[in-house]
Simulated scan of single mutants.
Amino acid sequence: MKYQTMASVKDAPTDTVTLDKQSFLTEMIRDLSGTLQDVIGIEEASGMISIVGATIGKDLNAQYRQQFATDQMTVDQVCHTLVDLKRRIDGGFKVTEVTREAIILENTACPFGKAVIGRKSMCMMTSNVFGKITAENLGYARVELKETIAQGDKGCRVVIKLNPSDSIDEIDGREYFREDD
């Protein structure tokens, strides 16, 4: 049996095909996180994504430390790093407040775009990357995702507490600690 082929693949109609590398990877991650949430539940899915986020956070921390030529970043350098890394992947984060107790960031654009809606487990990438970088440089971080685009908010509000709390009533979010070398 002989197959008749087109003269060129570039001549194939593509009006309805919206595939590109970015959209393919975004949809793959969305579908993977959705499958995990459906099969093993939101908590377990978040845990799985947290593992990946911690690894990415560790790698990014090393890159930014090299960029700043330091073994330990300052609070200002950590803030710059968190905003810059999200900017590079089309996030819209900005630091709105920095105190001795916390770094507060707000976000208007998720790197995953609309694909993140309904996929709360995907927010563990932000939590773990931010938590890992902050804790490795400042000793401790507790990341609280106060508002997220994934859960239907207009934007994200992330509070990174810089000191552990003795009160169980004050503990919200995920805690991160500096790894012993």
Rank of each mutant, 00 (worst) to 15 (best):
C123Y: 01
F24G: 06
Q63F: 13
V95G: 02
D84L: 11
Q22M: 05
V143R: 00
L138F: 11
A12Y: 13
Q63R: 06
T70I: 13
L60D: 03
Y3H: 10
M124C: 11
Y3F: 15
I40H: 02
R87C: 09
P164D: 09
P13C: 06
I171D: 01
V75N: 01
K161H: 11
A45H: 05
K161D: 04
T134I: 14
V17Q: 06
I171P: 00
Q4L: 10
I168V: 14
M73I: 14
N137M: 12
Y140L: 03
G91I: 13
G155L: 08
E27V: 14
D84G: 07
D31M: 13
A54T: 09
P111E: 03
K58Q: 09
D20I: 09
S46R: 01
K120N: 12
E44I: 11
K86W: 07
D76L: 13
V17F: 13
K146S: 08
M28L: 13
L162G: 02
E144L: 10
Q77R: 05
L60Q: 07
Q22S: 07
A45P: 05
I56P: 02
K2T: 15
A45E: 02
P111L: 07
T74K: 04
E43I: 15
F177C: 04
E144C: 08
G152H: 07
V78I: 09
Y176F: 11
N107Y: 03
G131C: 10
V158Q: 00
D38S: 14
G139C: 12
V129T: 07
S8V: 12
A141N: 02
K2W: 14
R88L: 15
I29L: 10
Q67F: 15
N163F: 13
T108W: 06
E147H: 07
Q63E: 10
I51T: 10
T26H: 05
L138A: 03
C123S: 03
E106L: 14
A141Y: 00
G113D: 06
K86E: 12
I160M: 03
R30T: 14
T16W: 15
I56L: 06
P13N: 04
F112I: 14
R157A: 11
R174G: 05
S127T: 11
G57S: 04
L25D: 05
